[in-house]
Nucleic acid binder design. Structure first.
Lengths: 345, 345
DNA sequence: TGTTAGCACTCACTTTTAACGAGTGCTAAT
DNA sequence: ATTAGCACTCGTTAAAAGTGAGTGCTAACA
């Protein structure tokens, strides 16, 4: 167990390093107002902290920097839930002053807000399609056998795809089919929609001996479209990465930016956050080589108890966890409130 | 006027520098198989070329590199329209083997293809909305006064927005209004659509004494949505920037990547390409400070003589113009062919 | 007259050496 | 238990020396 003094020193080191990005020496610490003991004492304590693996030195004659374990300890035990400043709280409220009634845009907006708030890069993972339920389906026949299919989920998410049929679909036939589909399929989870949709169309066709081509084409388009099944990822404040001193070296910066551009990789990385809390992963804890020098703060957002997606903040290991956590918590709430408004249950 | 030998030397310098990114010395050149004269002669010619401002030396004891004027001359006079290799031509055809019947996706796909083909970063400016004409308008009433409005242009572009009305819109009312709007508004350029739409709705309301709230809300949403009016920009191969030796320095890299992330700035930059040719801008010719070390190859794409958008390639000034131009020309044609298929005239 | 060989000169780049100083670990005194 | 003192470490910076690719100029050559 750590003594109070050791806690004080550890916190001071982490705080200082987060602020300056420079290794913290014993003399520097001894000059702080909340430190009453000498630099020699600090050196002794530092030696102990180092033995415990909480801090380390880049080289012999440098100050100490927090180790990953040190950050972990700091995050787990030393963070004060410093509440957001009054101005910021006010700003937060006004950010969502005029409702955004399209979830996609709301999510994008939120990503930007969070990055502005924290000066870190933000990732927002949109809702998984699978979990969502169908609210409404619309078929819009156009000229030349072109049909637009519009799909609205209960969360208010709208999506459209264009099909190309061999023969034109009459407006009447579309209307009848549509009515039938909406009757039978409303509330179907999107994960099951593909199958049921085809089944319904087949049944409809046998009953009305109507166009058959629609079936195969719709199958082609809707089913082969794998990538559309995964949620979208919105990024905010990519340029903030440039400001971090640890990423001044292109070799360090590159893997992070490259990863961020890869939707699939990010998706895999962000998805498996199961519990509902704030999750912080530091450096190697990310289990992703490109993020070995980064920390990620993640929060799940949900509406009516249904988990929808993830809000994440990505920065150097030396990131301002305090500010990050607080910002994400506060924005999360405002965000969820807005999301709920858009629900179409 | 330049002598044949000077042309040979200039071309050799540019070619070499494009390949190696190293200043080219007279001795290096004299060892080329197509150079029959000595390094001393080359030095004399180089001195002349330098006097003409076509090449320059980074410092006294280095080889020569092309000046912006040199690149300009190279691009204007020395590029051989080296046709694409047979394999590549075949590959190009197969790239669009299965048609993409949604323009948005087609454009995105094209951006990726072009960057893969050239190993440079690609920008594709989507069609301007203003120029496009309305093909079809659909109103989909949902629960709780939510209405999705779907808009299809004659180019096959589909767009949707969600409106929130104070009171619900009945399916019948929507259907009637929709029929009316489509009758009167089909073919309207989107730039004029906003105004005409409102007018039509007002007229419809007075004739049928129907919901009035729709008007104001639709106005709010459709009109205030400025940013949706500008075309989308798709990026491909952002990471390719990392491979260029001139951008190993974060200070050089940053402004370029930052600019690329800014939709508006790019829009302003890419738009004013009026003529239908391939346009190449080198370094300061870009008139954008962030691109002072970059060259941009642009090509307008059009369908049926109607200019739609821009295909652009961005790389260092030392970019492989030959390959870039050829790739963009060939892809442009394939792309336009695909686009034409999606037209709904 | 155009071309080439030769040579002194320039200058970025690399390596070497030296000086600096922030920081440490250890010891002895308080 | 705490602290003052001191030798030691080692990254950083600066200056000095050496290296080599490349140039410009001149004189000889075809």
């Amino acid at each position: 167990m750590l003594t109070d003094r050791q806690l004080l020193i550890l916190r001071a080191i982490v705080d200082d390093y987060i602020k300056t990005a420079q290794p913290v020496g014993s003399r520097t610490l001894s000059k702080r107002s909340d430190v009453t003991f000498s630099s020699a004492t600090i050196r002794n304590e530092m030696a102990d902290l180092e033995e415990m693996g909480l801090i380390e030195k880049p080289h012999t004659s440098a100050g100490r920097i927090p180790s990953e374990l040190g950050y972990r300890f700091y995050v787990d035990h030393l963070i004060r839930p410093e509440s957001i400043s009054p101005q910021e709280a006010k700003a937060l409220k006004s950010l969502f002053a005029h409702s955004v009634n399209e979830n996609d845009r709301l999510i994008r907006h939120t990503a930007d807000l969070l990055s502005e708030l924290t000066h870190y890069t933000t990732l927002v993972l949109g809702p998984k399609e699978e979990g969502q339920r169908l609210h409404h389906l619309e078929l819009i026949p156009l000229a030349e056998g072109r049909v637009v299919i519009v799909l609205v989920t209960e969360t208010g998410h709208v999506e459209h795809k264009t099909l190309q049929l061999a023969e034109a679909l009459s407006r009447e036939a579309a209307s009848r089919l549509m009515e039938r589909l909406n009757q039978t399929l409303r509330g179907t989870p999107l994960s099951m929609l593909r199958g049921r949709l085809l089944e319904e169309i087949r049944r409809f066709r046998s009953e009305h001996s109507e166009q058959t081509t629609l079936l195969s084409k719709a199958l082609d388009i809707v089913l082969t479209d794998q990538d559309e099944g995964r949620p979208l990822i919105y990024l905010g404040g990519k340029a903030n990465m440039f400001d971090q001193p640890e990423f001044q070296d292109v070799a360090k910066l590159r893997p992070v930016l490259e990863l961020i551009e890869q939707q699939e990789a990010l998706f895999d990385f962000l998805s498996p956050n199961l519990d509902n809390q704030i999750l912080i992963t530091i450096g190697s804890e990310n289990n992703v080589d490109a993020l070995k020098d980064c920390s990620v703060i993640r929060a799940h957002y949900s509406v009516d108890g249904i988990s929808l997606g993830t809000l994440a903040l990505i920065g150097p290991k030396r990131m301002d966890y305090n500010r990050g956590i607080n910002s994400i918590i506060h924005l999360l709430q405002a965000f969820q409130t807005e999301l709920r408004k858009n629900n179409l249950d």
